[in-house]
């Protein structure tokens, strides 16, 4: 326990970004007995930075969505390092709508530096795509379990992180802005990122205290523990009538940042 306390917020940022950390397809391989990826937003593109498909987890059928950073340089480039374009969020909504139609729960894996800040992303409506995702997932009539596995980078993360249960890996981080971005603005020095990381309160422990996440998944025996937690959450949620599910989800998010 003592050793754990010495890990700073910025140490966790580095751990969360570590290229050797499991990526979406590692999680899928370890947790799912079957996975069938489905492509495209039916509008303009098939974003590689946010992938999805139907999967079976211990016999439970679900839709899996997740940011994809890529494991090789080629994959990194194709996936834009997990920075999704509007097309990615629109693909996620399309697939989630399909899951809703056939009463399948949704499990999302969040790991992104943020939504892609590019000219093409702006032209295709990055802001609109994220906004629509938030509104959409808040009202999706099927259970949604969210796992923050690495970097929970701002709006680009939140767009697939509105759900009924929010799980977070021990060394994942989740923040309104990157520590470097915050340091650049408020400290006028990007090198003050460690100070910004500490001030922003972005670790799993911090977020648990703030009521933003429901559970922390230890990284020792990660896949076994995570699988158990996802299945337990899905089981709990599967018995709720849809109206109750949506009422609880609405209450969960509207209670955040409500004081006194």
């Amino acid at each position: 326990m003592k050793r754990k306390e010495k890990v700073t917020a910025y140490d966790r940022v580095k751990l969360a970004r570590d290229a050797k950390r499991p990526h979406i397809f590692d999680f899928i391989k370890a947790l799912c007995s079957d996975f069938e990826e489905l492509h495209g937003d039916r509008l303009v593109n098939d974003d590689q930075g946010l992938i999805g498909g139907f999967a079976t987890i211990d016999g439970v059928k679900a839709l899996v969505l997740g940011h994809h950073k890529g494991a090789t340089v080629e994959e990194n480039m194709a996936a834009n390092f997990g920075m999704a374009n509007p097309d990615g969020y629109r693909k996620a909504m399309r697939l989630a709508k399909l899951a809703e139609k056939f009463h399948l729960p949704v499990v999302t894996f969040v790991d992104t530096p943020g939504a892609y800040p590019g000219d093409t992303a702006e032209a295709r409506g990055q802001a609109e795509a994220i906004a629509k995702s938030l509104e959409f997932f808040a009202a999706l009539k099927t259970p949604v379990v969210v796992v923050v596995t690495g970097e929970g980078g701002s709006g680009g993360a939140l767009a697939i992180a509105v759900g009924d249960r929010i799980l977070m890996l021990e060394n994942a981080v989740y923040s309104v802005i990157s520590p470097e971005g915050c340091a650049g603005i408020l400290w006028r020095d990007g090198a003050k990122a460690p100070e910004a990381a500490a001030a922003l309160k972005i670790t799993a422990d911090d977020l648990k205290k703030l009521g933003v996440i429901d559970a922390i998944i230890p990284e020792r025996n990660l896949m076994a523990g995570l699988k158990k937690a996802i299945l337990a959450a899905l089981k709990e949620l599967s018995v709720l009538p849809v109206e109750e599910l949506l009422a609880q989800r609405y209450a969960k998010f509207t209670a955040m940042g409500r004081f006194g």
Binding site: A139, S154, V176, I202, L210
Partner: peptide, 26 residues
Amino acid sequence: GARMHEGILSLMQMAKTSAAIGRLKD
């Protein structure tokens, strides 16, 4: 944009406001 001085809870206001406005539209 979001107010970074209020950390993750300011980010969550994006979800909260969008959920409430979705209900109004519905």
